[in-house]
Computed example of a mutant assay.
Amino acid sequence: MRRIALVTLVVDDYDEAIRFYTEALGFRLVEDTPRPDGSRWVVVEPGTEGQATDGLGTGLVLGRAKDEAQRARVGDQTGGRVGFFLHTEDFAGDYARMRAAGVTFLEEPRHEPYGSVVVFQDLYGNRWDLLQPATTA
């Protein structure tokens, strides 16, 4: 079996990114390990602290920008397109919780043939879909 396990997301600051992904989006901090060069290996994934996972999901490596070229990509890693898709089984509940946490939504929720969806931005401006596929709607 092969799968994509981790995707790197370039961020300005480890701690503010951890707070956003864990508090506003409800992700779980999987690992935060200092490295000899002063950087950190930080991994978050959907879910909450203490929630068991099957280990087969995709996590995000939060990588602090190391130079000007990387800093220029923070918030624009996909050229302004939706680049990340957060699936949920509780669209209304997650939407309400994320709004209350201050997440910026770029539109009103839509109900499409493929499911319920709304576009939001992370703290750096990367675009995400919150999506409840029709098969679980």
Score class of each variant (00 low, 15 high):
G57Q: 12
G79R: 14
A69L: 06
A52G: 12
L56M: 15
V74K: 12
R64H: 08
D67K: 11
R64K: 14
K66M: 08
G83K: 10
V61A: 12
E45D: 04
Q51M: 13
V61S: 10
A65G: 02
R71F: 05
H87S: 03
V61T: 11
E45T: 01
V74H: 09
V43T: 00
D67M: 09
F84A: 11
P36K: 13
G63D: 04
R73L: 05
Q77N: 11
V43P: 00
T48L: 13
G50I: 01
P36C: 08
G50R: 08
V74R: 12
F85E: 05
S39C: 12
A65H: 03
Q70I: 08
L60F: 10
G59W: 00
G75S: 08
G79C: 09
L60D: 05
S39R: 15
V44C: 01
L62S: 00
L56V: 15
R64N: 03
Q70K: 14
D76C: 02
E68T: 02
R73E: 06
L60H: 05
T48N: 13
T88P: 00
A52N: 15
D67P: 01
V42W: 09
A52W: 15
D54L: 11
T88L: 02
F85I: 01
Q70H: 13
K66N: 07
V42L: 10
H87D: 05
E49C: 06
G63W: 06
A52K: 15
V44F: 02
D67L: 08
F84H: 13
G47P: 00
Q70V: 10
G55D: 14
D54W: 11
T78I: 03
A52M: 14
R73W: 05
W41L: 12
